[in-house]
Design a protein around this nucleic acid. Structure first.
Lengths: 217, 217
DNA sequence: CGTGATTCTGACCAATTGGTAAAACAATAC
DNA sequence: GTATTGTTTTACCAATTGGTCAGAATCACG
């Protein structure tokens, strides 16, 4: 009678635990990202992970715990692209590169994007603190960098917060609304992403180009 | 024993029916837009509408029916802003005006936007046909108009479908991610919308400005 | 008022769902 | 081997949830 299921604080010990925890989180991502927390059933996650429902609850104490683990893991990697925005780099190229990284994340990790979207749609009850803490701090910091770039004339002066919002909105749209995008593009494009990148590059290039650049200032 | 609850096909007759159906749909919008279909409970809708649960089911045959009614009503008004895009108007002004109308809808009807977002996130199981039918037809039609404008040099030539996607993404973001936007803007802006309008106007103005306009083509 | 149609409620039901208990099974240690 | 630890299953529970039904309350109307 072992009463010590794997703790969150310490990494799982045995190979079996690693494998099964990973399978559960993978399955949970699939399900939660589509139906949201309350709309998802443990049965679905169990079936998707190939384990039995009670076995799930051997590895995680509750449905809530699975979701929570998923979200906190996500929040960390989700901010990486913005963290990488280098105040010392070329302003326009930095912002364009950030947009490209975010678009890549939408392409390669659409479920993570939808998990996040679901959470925000529901009022962000489980990540409010991460938003007002970590995220807000990071955004404010980078917004200040962008503001300075605008002031210095390296890019057109735009509202930095809304610039960041627009990058989020435009890139995540391709993941969160993927179904709609693909249905509408049927008969025009098979894969939306190549055109999306070209379009967004043009959009942000023109937005950020210092006014009447060729005339020099 | 009256066996004829109000039908969807005919408008409700009595004043009481009008009032209660409206209250139910209003409450259902509030709940469904936050939790999605499967995450919402009839109890919540009942309580929010001030009616008892069995009374809800006197007016609507099922939870599904309430949601369905809400969605079909929405789809119709949701397309109005795009329908109003006039092929005979001034190209740049038409597109900017469309963006502004969409932004207004996000501001004035955020719950409708979130209801829609929730549905798409879940794979659009209930409005697939409306998307591949009505919506796709309308988008293709207006995209063709925009493509022509680009060809004629009235606006910069951009991918018209992705232009439309970008308008959706940017404007709906303020409704769908409202919580996040407000949390991050805390200490900077009280109401995001005035700045949003200014920012988006700049963004689309620059995107659509014909290249080196003063030099002529 | 009284009569019939409409609206509403309390009690109930069957199915679902998150979660538990305990024992069976597997792996590892000694 | 056998004891111990770790993993999985079977059987089950209590709460929730969508939905039903018979009758009570209310309304419309002559």
């Amino acid at each position: 009678m072992n009463d010590t299921p794997p703790k969150d604080t310490a990494p799982p010990r045995t190979r079996i635990q690693q494998k099964n925890r990973k399978a559960i989180l993978e399955a949970a991502l699939e399900v939660f990202s589509q139906y949201g927390f309350r709309g998802s059933r443990l049965d679905q996650i169990a079936q998707a992970s190939g384990l039995s429902k009670p076995n799930l609850l051997y590895y995680f104490p509750s449905k809530e715990a699975i979701h929570s683990e998923l979200l906190t893991c996500l929040m960390d990697t989700w901010l990486d692209p913005l963290r990488a925005l280098d105040p010392g780099g070329d302003p326009r190229e930095e912002i364009l590169a950030y947009m490209r990284r975010k678009l890549e994340m939408s392409r390669d990790y659409p479920r993570e994007s939808r998990l996040f979207a679901n959470e925000i749609l529901q009022g962000a009850p489980r990540i409010r603190e991460a938003i007002t803490g970590e995220l807000k701090a990071l955004v404010d910091e980078k917004a200040e960098v962008i503001r300075r770039w605008g002031e210095e004339g390296a890019i057109a002066p735009v509202n930095p917060h809304h610039l960041i919002f627009s990058i989020w909105a435009l890139t995540q749209h391709y993941a969160d609304f993927e179904v709609q995008v693909r249905l509408i593009l049927e008969g025009h494009e098979e894969d939306p992403y190549p055109e999306a990148e070209r379009y967004l590059e043009a959009l942000f290039s023109r937005l950020l180009a210092p006014e009447s650049a060729p005339a020099g200032a």
